[in-house]
Structures are given as C-alpha cells and as structure tokens.
Design a protein around this nucleic acid. Sequence first.
DNA 1: ATCCGGTCAC
DNA 2: GTGACTGGAT
Length: 375
Amino acid sequence: MSVSLLRNTAFLPSIPLGIQTIYSAKMRSSLNQETPSQKNLGCDGSGGSSVPELRVFIRRKRVKKTVEVIAKEVKEESSGKKFVRLPEIEDFSYSKDVTHSQSTPSKSVHLTGEKALSQLTQTEIKGFSLSDPLQPPLNWEKVLEGIRKMRSAEDAPVDSMGCEKAGSSLPAKERRFAVLVSSLLSSQTKDQVNHGAIQRLLQNGLLTADAIDSADEETIKSLIYPVGFYTRKASNLKKVAKICLSKYNGDIPNSLEELLLLPGIGPKMAHLVMNVAWENVQGICVDTHVHRISNRLGWVSRPGTKQKTKTPEETRESLQLWLPKEEWVPINPLLVGFGQTICTPLRPRCAICTVSDLCPSAFKEAASPSSTPKK
DNA sequence: ATCCGGTCAC
DNA sequence: GTGACTGGAT
C-alpha cells in the first residue's frame, strides 16, 4: 500500500550504504477504473484481491561524490513472477542487460546524483500506482492469436526455410557451426538464396571452422554468391572460422557477449544463434519486421515515454519487459511472416487484417498513391 | 526507382 | 544517427 511505501522510502537515507533493502508496495492494476486521485494514492489498504503486492529490491552504494541507488528488481508477491520493468523517472539511465545464466534477464535502473533518493521515491509512487508500467499492452494475447490465425491461412516466404534448419542432420558441433554460418550469411538475404549458399558450402566440405580457415577466401566468395554483401561476408567468415578455431576449439561461442565479438554478428543474429544453436533463450530476436510491427501495435516505447522505439535493440528491450518468455522465440517467425504478407512496411493491408480493430495504427499510414503517383 | 529478415565504421 | 556494403526483386 502506498502509505507504507511512503513511510519506508522516507527513511531510506538512514539505511547504511551497501545494504540491500526490500520495500513492499501494493500495486493497483491498470485495468481498474478509478479516479485519478485514487490512482495517485494507490490502494488505501482495504486490500482488494485484485491488488497484487510488489516488492522492490534496492541497493545503495557510494560512487565517487554521490550516492548511487539501484532498484534491483520488482516482483509480484502473489505469483512470485518477477518483473524487470522499472518506472518512469527523470534523469536516469538503464543499465545494460544483466543476464543470469539461464534465468530471465534482469534490468535495473541506476539513479545517480544528488536527487537520486527523492527521485526514487517519486518514481515508486508514480510507477506502481499511476502509470503502472508493469502491465502488458491491452489485448496483446488477442492480437497474437489473431496474427497466428492469419499466418496459418496465408503462406509467407519465411515458412519455407530458415537458418534454424541449417545442417539439421549434422553432429551437434557441426550443426552449431552451420547455424552460425547461416546466420552470418542470411542478413539482408532471402532464405532461399541463403539456403543455396549453405548447400554449396556443405557439398564442398566447407562447413566447419577448420575447412573454412584453410580455404581460399575467393573460393568461399564464389560459393556463397549471390548472398547479399558476399565480399564482406566471405571475409567475415574467414575471420570467424579462425576465432572459433583458436578460442573455441572449432565450436562456436556459447554466450551472447562472445558471439557479439564475432565480425558480422550483431544483436539480431546473436540472439538467433543462442536460440537455435544452443537452445538457450537469452533475448528476443528482433529484426526490422518485429521492430516495425511492435511499434505499430503500441507494444513498445522508449523508456518512460509513449514514443516509438528508434532501433531494434530498443524494441527488444521494451518487448522483453512484458512479453512472457514462452513467446520470445515464436514471436519472430510469427511477426516476420505477418510483416511480409499483411503488415508490410509500405501500404500495410489493414483492410484484410483481422486485428485492425485492436491496432492503434490501423489505417493511419498514408494510403500511398499506388494509383495516384504524384510525380 | 526503391525495397530489403543487418552490421559496422564514421 | 547516417551511410556503405551488394545484387536481386518488385
């Protein structure tokens, strides 16, 4: 309840540095209809069953001249479910994702500066009772279900083949390497073209770190042609093979951080490789379709605002704050296919979309002049 | 002519 | 943030 939250946070400054402290607060569901003043104050303590209890884990430590306050995590008491979303405040920055082995990635808000303590107090009240940022978007399950239905009716290119199938008949280690290579080649390239390139590499025995390392770059280049950016990719492939050989005994890195060190592997592919090669879901694989559609649906926003996310990475972080982990892997093929057939970048086909009534962007984009070219 | 299922360097 | 890398498709 907000009263105890206020009281607790009020004596925060007296708590010794470095001690982890736990605060409890009751959070009112955003679905409840109530007056703003009630919202602002949160539950008055009558303890309705619709009000889940939250805990905030807070750590304080001294950083140079100021005190840094870190709200470690938020979790719902009743279900035990952890939330990693922390509320809107001014003058703060999100820390980088911290991933705990196989568990849910967590995120913390770092507050630094003189006003950190008072900011945190405001934040908790605002976040838990008013703006209620822990709630997933309204109707997201209906939207997802609708998209699934549309996807099973239509046939999108993504259905036919993807790099997740690369080398499915190979021994584990070679299969992982094949997945990595396939990811490397597949950016900005149609699956079919990519698949052909992988087949040619395989037929020439060039789908292991060892073979690629000793092969001629020109040979690789000609085999992977015509995947997009084949010159650069051939060069990256050589470098990656060498790294895999020297640092990982010919296998591929098994962590997100190490995958990102490989040339040609960025966040999108690193998450894909973790998902597919290691079956270890560290994050959502966000490509341009997932990015675009998440924003159209109003599923993501820049931290603490209602603005659209600007990059796929921002989208990934925003999505991961509320989307249940079971959906992290399937969301990509689902939205990619949807984005290829219906929710296209240009002139989305809202008229045939069965979830347009739940989409804040439906029919909003300039119905572009397919028949009225203005120049 | 313009659009890609991305990454990297300025 | 912006553009280069690349060539095929619409």
